[in-house]
Design a protein around this nucleic acid. Structure first.
Lengths: 276, 276
DNA sequence: CCCGACGATACCCGCCGGGTATCGCCGGCC
DNA sequence: GGCCGGCGATACCCGGCGGGTATCGTCGGG
């Protein structure tokens, strides 16, 4: 199976329409039809059910869509990582999270013998897994239990407690400590929803957020409150207050990388990180 | 990057010899040289250092070898899993391990509504990870802490203590219990060596084994002793004795599957397994 | 009942993957 | 030191496959 065939199939399976898929791929429709037919013939299974009005996936088609996407990501990762081989590597971190910690980590690594250039890729929440899988990043800082580490090698770096961030004048903002029960039931201050694995938002009340700036601004505006690791205190303006939450689960920062890419450079960064 | 190019490159990078690589690929040498040149040109990096006597990998070449192997495995997995879509799935288990447990699991799954055919692939030790990665298996029974679960989704099934298996007449075979210290220092009965992740054997004394039959026979012959999960008792002949080891680490059986293949069938098996 | 949307088919062209023959380079051996 | 042999690169040729345009066959809907 060639990657071109996979790309073609994934396009058709996503669009469920040969014409649109061909347009997306920048080719005409007939060669696309032929390519899919040949793919089906070679695999010995039917992938798509075509009526003259609609296209739908068979069971085999669903399997190939999932597996094919993963395979294409692996190929893209090989491509990107090879292109930048030797020219340093890319570290993905959530914009706004672990700011100080990240600075210390980069300093520590820079002091290592043989350190190469590190490009820091600040991304939204829940994007890191995909960045690592498709090769746009080589190593990432993740936070348990929020991020999924399935499919990655990891090393734990530090664990911290959580605080609730409230607008300055809020009645509870002067309390020395709160409980989860008090925090989740705040009248008029819903907890925002973060994207889960795959980038989909869970249903429920509360605004959808995808980065920290956005979140902090919503809190300033008095439209949300949020549970965050205590290290976020360093970034809070004077109009926000952090109150410890005694029974909130702890957050663990981990450094993660794809298991097959044991490059010298990434190993050095991991070593520097675990020594912090 | 097309998979054919990746296959070609991996062959050359492994052989470090264009002629032999071409032979292995079943093509002539000139087209192979051209393909690698074109790959290097398109990637914009040199992968191989050629002198007229030897071929060696550059840093980029090492990266592409590792990433390319992973990508090829993902493509092969997509191929195999698509071909057998709908026709059941494959469960990989170590030959000789978890015998009874496996039988119960298969029975429980067969009773599920919508159960499909399960092919059981009995393999050697440390082969399962690769079987899952390249698509020859869809789901596997692994044993912590021996097997690596990096890159897999898992669910814990049961935890058991370990026993030491000794030849029948051995002086220690009548003891009610032993300690790790006593077991590792058995005179004349070395612990065998198992392949670690990647199928390589750690250095040291003791015979190399890669399946349970072989191991049990070695013990019968009085040439080895082994630490095994207590459930192995069911398979011991009368010439072998199992003695509990009080301070040995416990073994956890887990069911594992590649994260992207959340097929209905595998989900059913996992559900049946966790209910056991 | 006809139209229009959509996938399949027919047919053509140019490039690329593969083959054979040969070159150029270099290390080793007589 | 010159010849040989091993090895990758180059030159050149062919066939098939990827891609394009034109058109057909089949439905569902107005």
């Amino acid at each position: 199976m060639e990657t071109r065939e996979l790309r073609y199939y994934v396009a058709v399976a996503e669009e469920l329409h040969f014409g649109r898929a061909a347009e997306r791929l920048g080719i005409a429709q007939p060669p696309l039809s032929r390519a899919i037919q040949r793919l089906e013939r070679r695999l010995g299974v039917t992938l798509l059910e075509r009526s003259s009005r609609a296209v739908s996936l068979t069971e085999a088609g669903r399997v190939l869509l999932a597996e094919g996407r993963a395979a294409l990501e692996a190929v893209e990762a090989a491509d990107r990582r090879t292109r930048r081989a030797g020219a340093g590597f890319v570290l993905a971190a959530k914009a706004g999270a672990s700011g100080e910690f990240l600075a210390k980590l980069l300093d520590a690594y820079a002091a290592e013998p043989g350190a190469v250039e590190v490009e820091v890729l600040l991304c939204g929440i829940a994007e890191q897994e995909r960045l690592l899988r498709d090769g746009r990043a080589d190593v990432a800082l993740l936070h348990l239990p929020f991020d999924s580490i399935v499919g990655l090698d990891t090393e734990e770096l530090r664990t911290e407690t959580q605080v609730v961030v409230l607008p300055g004048g809020h009645p509870l903002s002067t309390r020395p400590s709160l409980t989860l029960a008090e925090v989740t039931a705040l009248p008029g201050l819903p907890m925002p929803r973060w994207p889960g694995p795959g980038g989909v938002y869970p249903p429920g009340p509360g605004p959808e957020v995808h980065n920290h700036t956005q979140l902090l601004q919503l809190i300033s505006l008095g439209r949300a409150a949020a549970l965050l690791p205590e290290s976020c205190r360093a970034q809070l303006g004077h109009d926000l207050v952090a109150v410890p939450v005694s029974d909130a689960p702890t957050v663990t920062t981990v450094i993660a990388w794809p298991p097959q890419s044991r490059s010298r450079a990434v190993a050095g960064l991991v070593r520097a990180a675990t020594r912090l």
